[in-house]
Amino acid sequence: MEKKGVFNTLIEQLMALPGVGKKTAERYAFFILKMPEEQARTIATAITDAKDKLRHCKICNNMTEAEVGTPTAVCKICANGARDPQKILVVEEANTLYAIEKSGEYKGLYHVLHGTYSPLSDNGHEGTSASINGLMERIKQGMSFGISEVILAVSPNIDGEATALYLTRMIKPFGVKVTRIACGIPAGSDIEYADEVTLIKSLEGRRDV
């Protein structure tokens, strides 16, 4: 089969996906060609629908569905009255939010930063300044119904540390409790393989049993 025109375009477009090289893109393209037409159209519609309808929640920046032509919407978590409005859990990306939601343990609200404060990059926190401002607005407005805690679920690396320090400095003056998720030995692993920084962090974060 001669690979040019439409087929080549399909391969090129599939290569735009993360982790997909030319070989994999070719495999996907051949698979798409072999699949029933209806299934292929469903995939195409799902992609265009996601692009048309998914928006950032106007409260927490999480992904949410909105009618076509509507600029903003509120996500299911923010709209859920059963969630604890006194707790806000701050995450770097929306996929972290889904990982935490999957655990089923947290019942409060979220705020997605869509990035971190990166001290080594020239832009610093340019990418996240809008979402940080949004968080500060939420805290200011939430003072009336008593936001009691802001939980920082940022990665334990230098960008995460800088983000946590920056947010703590911004939030503390409002008298809101700021906490950070624990950091240390991952569940299911052996302590002997942990490096010294991880061990020190886990010792610092030890708790009563």
């Binding site: 001290p119 230098i158 800088a162 490096d195 920084v197």
Partner: peptide
């Protein structure tokens, strides 16, 4: 790790 310099990453001024 030979030495982590971890204290440099724990507060604002040393990071800067």
């Amino acid at each position: 790790i030979l030495y982590s310099f971890r204290k440099l990453r724990e507060s604002w001024e040393p990071i800067e």
